[in-house]
Design a protein around this nucleic acid. Structure first.
Lengths: 108, 108
DNA sequence: ATTAAATTCGCCTTTGTCGAATAAATAGAA
DNA sequence: TTCTATTTATTCGACAAAGGCGAATTTAAT
């Protein structure tokens, strides 16, 4: 059965989409990941992940209005769904819990 | 090239090993993951991840002294390395940053 | 020898990754 | 106006890395 939890990159993309609010589309997401995470990534990787997150219903999308720039296709704008938000929150909570449980001397 | 970053499960295992301090070995890790993360996982999956983390030098291991229990092999005890710790901290820091950047209305 | 407790092996699925192909919108030429 | 070159974006197809399982193997006590 298709996975229901979040891969590492999937979670990052979710966070970035939330960051970008109403400007979250492929290229912007790619740029943002590279800047905020200091990590190289191609545009096709981004789209691949976006598509999978949509299949999992953690993201939804709509086409933007045509802009006044040079040319090119309309942007596909993404937004985090309620269940995407829940997945993000739950994943964060779990990790916070685990951090809290680490004894001091573990990192001496 | 073999990946240098942390997969989702890899990060969890690192956290659990730190939690277990000096009792981190296969079975204990499996049990702890199931309890703390509410997620089913087999012992071979755990060992698989453990091995990968060791190859990445985020974990190191040593054999325990034989115990006074019934029988069986000696436990392979794991501990987070300095660079494993750095990976954990960096990963957490990055995500905290991203959470901080999410505008209020993103989750209206 | 048997049995118990643990780790290793082989195999498959899902997630991460990229380069190349394709699509759509606009500006300017004919 | 119609065409076409250029720009901006998304989709496709292939492969590598990480996640996952059941069965096999190893080792230590009884």
């Amino acid at each position: 059965m298709k996975g229901t939890n979040l891969g590492e990159l999937e979670e990052i993309v979710l966070l970035i989409v939330a960051n970008l609010y109403d400007m979250a589309y492929g290229v912007a997401i790619k740029v943002e990941i590279e800047e905020k995470c200091g990590r190289k990534i191609t545009i096709s990787t981004v789209h691949n992940v976006l598509q999978r997150l949509q299949e999992k219903e953690f993201l939804e999308s709509r086409y933007s209005e045509p802009t006044k720039e040079r040319g090119g296709k309309r942007k596909l704008l993404f937004r985090v769904t309620k269940s995407g938000q829940e997945a993000m929150v739950s994943s964060r909570g779990m990790r916070e819990e685990l951090w809290r449980g680490i004894p001091e001397l573990a990192f001496k």
